[in-house]
Write a protein that binds this DNA or RNA. Structure first.
Lengths: 232, 232
DNA sequence: CTAATTTCATGATGTAAATCATAAAATAGA
DNA sequence: TCTATTTTATGATTTACATCATGAAATTAG
C-alpha cells in the first residue's frame, strides 16, 4: 500500500462533510492517504483494528472469508464510502476484509482520532449511527433473500443494486467491472451457477453482457424476479 | 396491546441507563408501557414507524416476512433489549415485525422524543451507534453462514447463541421455549429439515430435547459443527 | 514474447435440502 | 368435553444447486 503525496479534497466523506469547520484542520493533520492497485488488500479479516478508511477514488469489495475458495461479498464501496467501520464494536479485529477492485485511493484516520472526532462532532456521530441503521436494514434484507430467494432472483436483485449504486456509462453498462466469481460471491452461490443464471437472464432479454461489462436492458423483468413468491 | 398501569423501573434499558439523570423525569413523562400476550404482534413489517420499544420483561422475536408461510427470524430479544430500532433510517416504515414469544411488557417512546433524547444525551447516541455496529457484525456473520454453512451447522450455531443469550435453567435447558418452526425460521430452513437435523444432533449426543425445551450437552461438538470447512 | 496462471465456458453427476403427503399428539377454543 | 386448529413426527419424491471434470480464452508474469 503506497502512501500518496496528494491528499483528498476534504469534501468527499461523511467525516469531512459533517464535522465542524473548526475541526477540519485537525482532520487534515491526522489523515493519511494511500493508493492501492487492483486486487490489493486494504485490511484483512482478523487484523487488529487500527483505524477507519474513506474511499476518495476507486472501488472496493468488502468480503467475509469462508473456506479456501469461498467467501461472501458483504458490500461494494465507492467514492465517499466508509470502509473499516465494521471494526468498531466490542472486538478489536476487523470482521471482514477489504480489497480494491480497481486502482483506489483511500483516506485513513486512526481510531483514537476518529473516536475523538465523534465526541466533538455530534452531527458526525448522528449520521454515522444512521448510516449503521441503514446498513443493518440492507444486511437483513439480503439475509432473508439468501434464505428464501432463488439464485436467479438474487442475481437479478444484485444487478439492480449495482446499477443503482455505480450507475451506467453512455452505452448503459454498469460502471463496475465485476468478475463472475465476484458476482457469485456477492449472491452467495458458486461461479458455475452464477454463470448459468446470467445466461438465463441473457436469454430472457433482461441483460446484455460483453466481457465483464453488464447492461440491464429490462429492469422490470429483474425486479419481478426479485419478487417471485414474495406476495403470497 | 394492553396499556400497563405500572411502568418499568427506569433502570433496565439503554435509554434509562445512559441518559443524564436530569433527563430521566422527561423519559418517565413520555414513556408508555404496554403488555402483550404470547403470539401478539407489537408492530408489523411495513407499518409506519411511530416510535421505539424497550423490553421490560418477556421475550420477542423480530422477523422478516417472505411468502405466506415463510419468514426469517432476524433476532431474538429479551429484557433490556431495544426493539423497533430498525425503523430508524431513511424509510419511515418498519422493515421487520416483532412478536411476543411469551407474555411481555414493553416500554414505548415516540420517535420525536427519542430523537430529542439522542440530541441531548451524547452517551446514549454513542452507545446506540455501537449497538448498531455490533448488530451489523452479527448480521453479516449470519449472512455468510446462511450462504455457506450446512443446515446442521447453522442449527448448532443457533443453539449455542440461544444458550448464551437466554441462559439455562437448573436442569440445563435453554430459557426459551422455541417451536421447531421458529428454529427453522431462525436458521433459514424448513420445519422438516430443522426437525431432522435436531434428531441428528440428539443421536450425536450433542443436545437433549424435551418438548420445546432444549438442553446443550456437548457444546464442543456444536462449536465444531459450526466450524466445518471454515479453516481450509 | 512465451509460459504460467487465472478467468471463462459448459456438460455430466451427485446430493443436500425443499416439497409433498399423512397421521398422531398436543393445545386451544366453543 | 368435544371439536378444531396448531404443532410434532416421519417417510417418499423432487429439484435446485453444488461439485466434478475438462478445455479454451484471456490475463499476468518472467
Amino acid at each position: 500500500m503506497k502512501k500518496d503525496k496528494h491528499g483528498c479534497d476534504l469534501k468527499t466523506c461523511l467525516m469531512c462533510r459533517l464535522c465542524l469547520k473548526e475541526w477540519l484542520p485537525a482532520v487534515e493533520a491526522h489523515r493519511k492517504n494511500y493508493t492501492l492497485n487492483k486486487g490489493q488488500l486494504l485490511f484483512s479479516e482478523n487484523d487488529a483494528v487500527t483505524g477507519i478508511y474513506f474511499i476518495y477514488s476507486g472501488k472496493m469489495k468488502v468480503h467475509k472469508h469462508w473456506s479456501k475458495d469461498k467467501e461472501l461479498i458483504v458490500r461494494f464501496a465507492r467514492k465517499g464510502d466508509i470502509v473499516g467501520h465494521r471494526g468498531i464494536g466490542t472486538e478489536l479485529i476487523y470482521p471482514v476484509s477489504a480489497t480494491a477492485l480497481e486502482p483506489t485511493t483511500v483516506c485513513y484516520i486512526d481510531m483514537d482520532f476518529f473516536k475523538s472526532s465523534l465526541k466533538v462532532n455530534n452531527e458526525v456521530l448522528y449520521e454515522l449511527m444512521m448510516f449503521y441503521a441503514r446498513e443493518l436494514q440492507e444486511s437483513e434484507k439480503k439475509m432473508r433473500n439468501l434464505a428464501h430467494m432463488t439464485v436467479k432472483g438474487r442475481i437479478a436483485t444484485a444487478l439492480l443494486m449495482l446499477l443503482q449504486k455505480f450507475g451506467a456509462d453512455e452505452d448503459g453498462y454498469i460502471n463496475l467491472n465485476l468478475s463472475k466469481q465476484d458476482l457469485a460471491s456477492y449472491t452467495g452461490t458458486t461461479y458455475e451457477t452464477a454463470f448459468r443464471m446470467m445466461n438465463e437472464l441473457i436469454n430472457d432479454n433482461a441483460v446484455e453482457v460483453a466481457g465483464k461489462n453488464i447492461k440491464v436492458i429490462n429492469a422490470g423483468k429483474l425486479e419481478k424476479l426479485g419478487r417471485e413468491y414474495e406476495e403470497e
